[in-house]
Design a protein around this nucleic acid. Structure first.
Lengths: 236, 236
DNA sequence: CAGTGGTCTAGACCACCAC
DNA sequence: TGGTGGTCTAGACCACTGG
């Protein structure tokens, strides 16, 4: 059966491949409905999805214009610095797990993001991201044990999100983030090789599941000269 | 006639007023459809709008839970620092127009945000935001003269966006933003009272109209200790 | 004028959740 | 089991754009 997800993925692929190039118009909604054998409403839902992703812009009376071909890599944390800069500039990169322990969530740190957070048991991971053998990010990650009972060192060293979504079937829905700048802490100075006068960019986040349960908090501290964040926002 | 916008504004208001409090469920979709005398599809469109805004989260089989009561003030530039911090902490604030001239757009500055930008004529505004008489932000704003022919000093000192939307009828659709950190430039040092060793947080943006025309670029440079950015992101 | 997107309806069937 | 949201349809009318 041709369903919404199929049409969506197909259009995304065609846009990223340039079949529908940036600056051109997609086929009309009726045309698409015919092609995919669905109703126009279904097509409209798909297009509204593409609008949300920042790939197209609808223009009344004209059509749907492609305004961006790239898919954002990180839906929840569009930090360009690490993955993208590394990929774009062909740099070596590595992640080192510093520690993995059980703690209470340091609630105060995330107060401004979610005042309702309770002090709960968490897996506390600290890791360092290296680019060209130079440490650029310190990651503090707190995963709620009530949602993720066990977190092995092996998993922590790999992609944690794949484990959450694919293995555990967690459905991640949304996140709140905050970006600010601070002078380097003692730990920053030690792990990133900074002086007390230098600054780090701090990204805090709280991530929630579909049932609105928070399940993970992160605090990542970036070398200021290696930080870049991109965003796409629509007028509401 | 009861239309989508009416229902939307009504629900937003009821949420912000606490009629539907954070952590509670909205009435069901059928219930809402009955109450407002619309079809369920219309209600669903409205709810999906609230989801986008980060006000509710839909939970299958249960209902639509309110997860946030506040409306974000700045749909396009959620910089908490200036307006919100000022409001929250009851600080004095003031904006000073430094200069208003006609130039060519410094394309290179915005290259990474939009590679297709052309060098065009712009109104170049420089302004400084003061909090408690202390300068905290330098704003460089470039407004395309092709879209906004005239920009008086009087308007520039007031709210520029109101002028664009209400007076000129411009329909602002979306924006691309980038946040990074740099050492203070000569101008930063002078206007913000910084030393060359101190850093500023730089926010660049390009704003587009509904017909995908870019019409404004901004570069705002923030004292690092007064910068804070909040974001709400959904899993795509 | 014909084509495009914007809005809306009335009804259908499904998966999920709670009792 | 009954209520909730998720998906989809077929058709209607409107406002806007372009030639």
């Amino acid at each position: 059966m041709t369903t919404r997800q199929n049409v969506l993925h197909d259009l995304i692929q065609q846009i990223s491949q340039g079949t529908y190039a940036k600056g051109t118009l997609l086929p009309g909604e009726n045309e698409l409905a015919d092609r995919y054998g669905t109703s126009r409403n279904t097509i409209r839902k798909v297009l509204s999805d593409l609008v949300q992703r920042g790939l197209i812009q609808k223009i009344n009376g004209k059509g749907s214009m492609v305004i961006e071909q790239q898919q954002f890599v990180f839906p929840l944390s569009n930090i360009v610095s690490y993955k993208e800069i590394v990929a774009e500039q062909h740099l070596d990169n590595e992640t080192q797990l510093v520690s993995l322990t059980e703690k209470k969530l340091p609630v105060a740190v995330f107060n401004e993001l979610d005042a309702d957070l309770q002090s709960v048991d968490v897996h506390a991971m600290v890791s360092v991201h290296l680019v060209n053998a130079k440490p650029v990010i310190i990651d503090h990650e707190y995963v709620f044990t009530s949602v993720v009972p066990t977190l092995s060192q092996h998993v922590a060293e790999d992609s944690v999100y794949e484990y959450f979504e694919d293995e555990l079937g967690l459905k991640i829905a949304y996140a709140r983030k905050e970006i600010s700048a601070e002078y380097a802490s003692a730990e920053d100075q030690q792990l990133l090789g900074l002086t007390p006068q230098q600054m780090v960019v701090v990204v805090k986040s709280v991530t929630y599941l579909e049932d609105t349960t928070p399940f993970e908090c992160t605090e990542s501290r970036h070398r200021a000269d290696m930080f870049k964040f991109r965003d796409f926002a629509r007028r509401l």
